[in-house]
Structures are given as C-alpha cells and as structure tokens.
C-alpha cells in the first residue's frame, strides 16, 4: 500500500494505492492517526489506484468518515474503480461518503 497527500484549493487529497485489506488497513489507520486527527481542510480520498478493498478497509473508512465529520469539514472519495465502488455501494457507505468522478468534482 502507498499513501500520499497533496493540497489543491483548500482541499486535502489523500491518494491510496494498492490493497486496503486485513493485512494493510492498519497502515492507513496509523497514517490517519498522524495526519488527519485535526483536519484543516475538506478531505477527498483519491482511489484511482486502489485495486482492492475488503471489510477491514471499510472499517477504517467508517472511522475516517466519523473523524472528519466531527470537525466542520467534509469527507468524500473520488476516481473509485468500478469493483471497489461496488463494495461501498453494497455496504451502503455511499450514503454517507459521497463518491465523485474526479478530484475536480470534489471541489465545491
């Protein structure tokens, strides 16, 4: 798994590449603990290179969503591959984490 962050127009873009599963989800949790505890901007997760997600990954996504929504900021995802998007839809996560088609669409 590879995690990186950048900023664009007061939006924090977190890019996660590879697999978000039972073996790797703790890496994202650790990264979030270091970098997203007090978010200063809205946050979008760029999943264009996320190839796999399981319930272990969903668990982390739920925690991130709750963490960011506790602040005054918004949390969304973008560029999600079809099979990964399907997992979010089956689980009903798309009802509380908006999915955008591009980083640009994430900027209101």
């Amino acid at each position: 798994m590879f995690i990186s962050a950048s900023h664009k127009n007061d939006l924090m873009i977190v890019t996660v590449e590879g697999r978000l599963d039972s073996l790797t989800s703790s890496e994202l949790e650790t990264w979030v603990d270091k970098n997203l505890v007090s978010p200063e901007h809205d946050v979008v997760m760029d999943f264009s290179r996320l190839d796999y997600i399981s319930s272990a990954g969903l668990r982390v996504m739920l925690n991130i969503s709750k963490l960011i929504n506790k602040s005054s900021h918004k949390f969304s995802m973008c560029c999600v591959q079809d099979h990964v998007r399907e997992v979010f839809e089956i689980s009903g996560f798309d009802s509380f984490i908006p999915i955008h088609t591009s980083v640009g669409d994430s900027i209101e």
């Binding site: 399981s54 319930s55 969903l58 668990r59 739920l62 925690n63 709750k66 929504n69 689980s91």
Partner: peptide
C-alpha cells in the same frame, strides 16, 4: 443505517 449509528464489523459475511 446512517453513519453515526454504524458500528465496525459485520460487513464481511454480508459481502
């Protein structure tokens, strides 16, 4: 369920 009522777990077998 809305986000604030969601709890971790239970989704694996559902998937």
């Amino acid at each position: 369920l809305p986000q604030h009522q969601r709890k971790a777990g239970g989704l694996g077998l559902y998937l």
